[in-house]
Design a protein around this nucleic acid. Sequence first.
DNA 1: ATTAGGG
DNA 2: CCCTAAT
Length: 472
Amino acid sequence: MLRDTMISWKTQMRRFPKILVFNVHVRKHYWWHLKYLPPLVAEPGDAVSTLNYGAHEESCLGNVALESHSPHLQERDRGAENSYLSSDRVKVIESSCHKSAMLLDQMTVQELCKVFCRIFGHETSVIDKQWLIHHIPCGMQSHCKLVNGLNMFESLNTSKVSGEKPIVLSPRASSGTAPDSFKDILDSQHTSGDKHVKKEKLASCNSLKMLPSLVGEVGCCSMGKTNAEEVLVTQRTMNKPTRSFTQAARLQTSRYSYRKYGPSDRNLRGKFLDVRSHKKYHQKGPGATQIVCQEESLKASSLQVSSGLPLQKRKPKKYTSYLGYDSRDSKENGVSVSNEDFDTEPSSVKSQDCISEDDCVTSSTQRGRKLKRDHRRWTLGEVRKLIIGVTEHGVGKWTHIKRLMFSSSHRTSVNLKDKWRNLLNSSTRALRKSKVQQESNQLPESVLCQVRELAIIYAYPRKNKPSMSCTA
DNA sequence: ATTAGGG
DNA sequence: CCCTAAT
């Protein structure tokens, strides 16, 4: 039976929250970058849906060469929610997303041992990663449990609550093609000793996600070598955060909003200091309020918060950027962009964010909450995360995106919304701009491309005018 | 509590 | 990025 990976794009995005297909034109074939979370794989012979979000070469886990023409998303009727991307269903000619090879490669030895145990039913004392990588797929094949194993592992590993429903769409595949294509990557080494060859192979595989320039090369030399066969394609439901995760996120959010609505100048304004807000105030954080009041009365005796005098102080917008932030941002813009991936924030950024957040808090309390929000430029990584977030959750789900993608960031959901609006504007405006002007804009064209395409998919509520989608 | 939209 | 209305 032929599995059909074609689902309505929205469903597709829900079920494969991590799949993004990117189009890069390389010579006569179109190479697509597949960004995915395990266990989605694309094999030669597969018909895959191609959601074109423009070239996005830095953050792909693999890529596939697709047959012939390049489908264009804008041809799709964007009003039809359930419309199938029939024109976007393209056969895979070549794929670097070989089964679970890349996934296994990314696991730690410990994780691999767990998987091994799941597959073979017994533990292994082998701690050789390459050996495990080589043997696990064999067991998966024979047990026809490649996907299930991975899913079980994953759910085990992340302690997710059910929801994982792997579907082996082509049972034949797991007995036939899986090992073959796996050997494509792991062929030359038969023993655990031969690490170098394999390492090189895997490295070249991995390099695809790091070095887009290699894509064409790899694609050309391997083009057409693999036979097109049916393979297993897996589905998994949307990442459902665990309850603990959700609670933690909620906690964080509430803490965040406490900071925001507690000692912020907003609530100190007279017009908010009616009875109701007063009540609200003390509910939220009486201690903080008192401190604020004391501080405020010390700093500006005319501002009597407790008595509700409507004297409003406009915060001077100084300290808009703290030392170091700009340098960090530019650095991040230039180099470490590819680190920004998926929902795992790079620790460096995370820690930075935490630190800066703390800085913000302390300084705001120390200086009398003048600078409620520091104006930090949006980094390219943040923009990317936002785009991914919008891709996965849609426009308007700002709190979800905030929780999932910016949980440790100082960006609020409103910030995300604002930024998205700005991105839309700049992306459409960039069409009419000269190249010099575009370069003055720090956003690369690829990002703007993605925004444009997402704008087509998710028409921004109301006032949006994705005019390019209609004309172009 | 969140979002859309104006500023 | 801030602010507010609206939900």
